[in-house]
Amino acid sequence: PESADLRALAKHLYESYLKYFPLTKAKARAILSGKTGDSAPFVIHDMKSLTEGEQFINCRQMPLMEQRPDLGMVQESPDEVELRFFHSCQFRSAEAVREVTEFAKSIPGFVGLDLNDQVTLLKYGVIEVLIIMMAPLMNKDGTLISYGQIFMTREFLKSLRKPFCEMMEPKFEFSVKFNMLELDDSDMALFLAVIILSGDRPGLLNVKPIEDLQETVLHALELQLKMNHPDSLQLFAKVLQKMTDLRQLVTDHVHLIQLLKKTEVDMCLHPLLQEIMKDLY
């Protein structure tokens, strides 16, 4: 009976995951391997294709384009293009935070926690979740962006000026290793819930109910991995070890953003991201 409950929990979280996250790993891997049958993603590999890619999308992810329909005719400096791209990334990240929040609320017991603790769990967990969710979109050569409509090359991201060029490379290094574990979307759903329900986040008021919830999800994840990957030895332990790498990645990411805030006069950080990163690490 206990196993049945854990399987039901896994099924519930997988359904929530599919409901709130539009680009699944299955879909992303199909796009990356050219098996979708649709047209291939637009490839951004230099400044020119970046501008063309923005015009290719020309929709809600690009609010600045809508405000400036003359952009196609204006010769912009690479600095301006980089900064605008960074703003678009922020806009998408804020939307992703909303998706993660909805997923967190669907974890059984989460909305019953102290509201302050719900805020803390999201504040500290959401960037870790976003980094994990980036992994399926990446391969060693680049990453899908804009819901899989665009593929941006790793080399192009490395060619941006400092510190923009330093932002994605650690995520590529992490993702290439993480993808070797070959988790699927149903495994990912449970792992994301485990990350969100971390009882050691600073400032939590009532740790016990969070740890209890996490323990149940951990059991569900362990069972899921045994059933879904019977030949992958110690997979559960290997997955959990990734949580240590994640914390370091987030710490470095937040420091880079803080550096950007100091060095880029034209940079404004999305208010939701500001709220999350303020006094984070």
Binding site: K105, L115, N116, V119, T120, L122, K123, P271, L272, E275
Partner: peptide, 21 residues
């Protein structure tokens, strides 16, 4: 904490999008 995280708090309460907030 909720005071310092008004947008997160609002997302948790009613799920408005960041832009609506």
């Amino acid at each position: 904490l909720q005071e310092k995280h008004k947008i997160l708090h609002k997302l948790l309460q009613n799920g408005n999008t960041p832009d609506e907030v």
